[in-house]
Simulated assay, not measured.
Amino acid sequence: MKNPETRPALQWSAAMALSGTIGAVVLESGAAAPAVAFARCLVGGVLLVVWCLARGYLRSWRPSPRDLLLAALGGVLLVANWVLLFTSYTLSSIGVSTVVYHTQPLILVGLAAAFLGEKVAKTHLARAGVAFAGVVVISLSAHGDDGQPVRFAGIALALGAAVLYAGTSFVAKQLTHVRPHLLAAVQLAVGTVLLAPALAFTPLPHPVPGLLWLVLLGTVHTAVMYVLMYASIGKLPTTTVALLSYLYPVVAVVVDVLAFGHRLSWPEGLGMLAVLAAALAPQRGGRPRSRTTGESVTRGSGPCGTRTPARPRR
C-alpha cells in the first residue's frame, strides 16, 4: 500500500531545496536587494493571483477590514525581511546568513510569549541559548566568500531579517481562517506597491541575464515554492516537517561552498550545527487533532513567512 505521506514529503523537500538556492539566484541577478524583493513580489504575486483565480479561491473570499489590515502589515514585515536578508548575503555569505536567519522559530516563540501570553518552556530557553551561542561562534570565526572575516553588519542584518520573519508569522497566526495562498498573494501585492518607489534608487538590472534570474526567483522560488509548501505541510507530521526543513540551510551551505568557494572552518561549522539543532528541533508535546478525522494535524509557518493551515480555509 502506498504511503500517503510520500507525495507531501517530496513536495515539502522540493520546496526546502528551492529555498536553499534563493541566495545564489539573488547574487547571480546582480541587482540590489530592494530591486530583487520588488521583482519577487511582482512576478510571484501575479502568478499566485492567477493560481487563486484558477482554483476558485477568490470567488468566495470576503475579507474583513481587519483581515486586510493584518495581511497588509504582514506584507510590510515580509518584504522588509527579504530586503535585510538579501543584503546580508553580500556582507557575509549565503550559508552564514541563512543559518543565522534560522533563529527565527525561537524568536517567534518569544513574540508569542510576550504578546499572546503563551508559556515558554525551559527547554525552549535552553534551545535559544544554544542557538545564539552558535551565532556568536559564527560571528567570531566565519569568513565570507572573499576569504575575509564576515562583517558584523551581515550577521546583524540576518538576525534583523529573522525578527521580521517571526513578526510576519506572528501576524499570520491571527489569520489562520484565510487560505495561505490568498494571504501570500495579498502580502506580495503590498510588497510590490511598497518597493516600487525604491526602483528610482536601485533599478532593475539592465542585462537580460540579470532579469532572467529575477524572473526565475519570482516563478520557481516564489509561486511554485509556495504552492508546493501549502500542498504538503498540512499532510505531514511535525517531526517530518522539522527534519526535512534542514534541507533549506544545508542546501544553502552546500551551494555556498560549491558555487561560491566558501571555506567552512570547524568553529563555523560547529556554530552552524548549534543554531540548526536548536532552532529546527521539533518541540515536545501533542499536536491538535482534526475535528473531522481525529487525526493529528500540523500548523506551522513556512519560509515565506505566512501561516500554513493544516486544512483548507475559506
Rank of each mutant, 00 (worst) to 15 (best):
K2W: 14
R7G: 08
P8C: 10
Q11T: 11
L18K: 03
V26A: 02
S29C: 10
P34V: 15
A35K: 06
V36E: 00
V36D: 00
C41Q: 11
L42V: 15
L48M: 09
V50Y: 12
C52N: 04
L53S: 12
L53N: 10
A54H: 14
A54R: 15
L58G: 05
R59A: 00
R59G: 06
S60D: 07
W61S: 07
S64I: 09
S64E: 08
R66D: 11
L69S: 14
L69V: 13
L73Y: 00
G74N: 06
G75Q: 03
V79I: 08
A80E: 04
A80Q: 04
W82H: 08
V83I: 14
V83S: 03
L84Q: 01
T87I: 11
S88I: 14
Y89Q: 02
S93L: 07
I94W: 07
G95P: 11
V96R: 14
S97Y: 12
Y101C: 04
H102N: 03
L106R: 01
L106G: 04
F115Q: 00
G117D: 00
V120M: 14
A121L: 12
T123C: 08
V130W: 03
G134P: 02
V136H: 14
A142Y: 12
D146Y: 00
D146F: 06
D146M: 06
D146S: 01
G147Q: 03
G147I: 01
Q148I: 05
R151H: 15
F152C: 09
F152L: 15
A158P: 10
A162V: 02
V163W: 14
A166S: 15
A172I: 01
Q174E: 13
H177Q: 14
H181V: 01
L183D: 04
V186I: 07
V186C: 03
L188I: 01
V190G: 02
L195S: 06
L199G: 12
F201H: 13
L204Q: 11
P205Y: 09
V208Q: 10
P209C: 13
P209E: 10
L211P: 11
L211R: 15
L216A: 11
V220Y: 03
H221E: 07
T222L: 10
V224P: 00
M229D: 09
S232C: 09
G234H: 01
G234K: 01
L236A: 04
L236C: 04
T240G: 06
V241D: 01
A242S: 10
L244M: 02
V253M: 08
V254I: 15
V257K: 07
V257D: 11
G261E: 07
R263M: 06
L270M: 13
G271Q: 11
V275M: 05
L276A: 08
L276D: 02
A278S: 04
A278Y: 02
P288N: 08
S290N: 15
T292E: 14
G294C: 13
V297I: 15
T306R: 01
R307W: 08
A310F: 03
R313F: 05
